[in-house]
């Protein structure tokens, strides 16, 4: 079964992936399956959201339904149909 998750991309990710994405993923979905689908849909920007091993880059800030998902296990965080995921890549320069 496939369902739709709403994705909001901020800053550089908005440039790469668009403002509001509707991502179709197999259920049960996780943060990992959503970001991997985003990378599959946007091969040119995939390396900015995934590292060399195909994992979500550690620096990327993830929110599910506007709640920050911290920690190393966040890729396994469950995402339900209709949930909103937000993704932000922090910036560094000054």
């Amino acid at each position: 079964m496939v369902d739709t998750v709403h994705v909001r991309a901020f800053a550089r990710f908005r440039e790469l992936f668009g403002d509001a994405l509707e991502v179709r993923v197999k259920v049960p979905a996780t943060v990992r399956s959503v970001v991997q689908e985003i990378a599959r849909m946007n091969p040119d920007g995939a390396h900015e959201i995934l590292d060399g091993e195909g994992n979500l880059r550690k620096s990327v800030i993830v929110l599910v339904n506007r709640e920050r998902i911290p920690g190393n296990g966040r890729e396994d965080y469950p995402v339900h149909p209709g949930d909103e995921i937000a993704l932000y890549p922090p910036v560094a320069g000054g």
Binding site: F10, R14, E15, I61, R66, R68, P70, P90
Partner: peptide, 19 residues
Amino acid sequence: LMVWDGKAGCWEKICISRD
């Protein structure tokens, strides 16, 4: 984290809790 997007011309507010 108040995030400024100068391409889209908008601010986003990402709420952060103490870890």
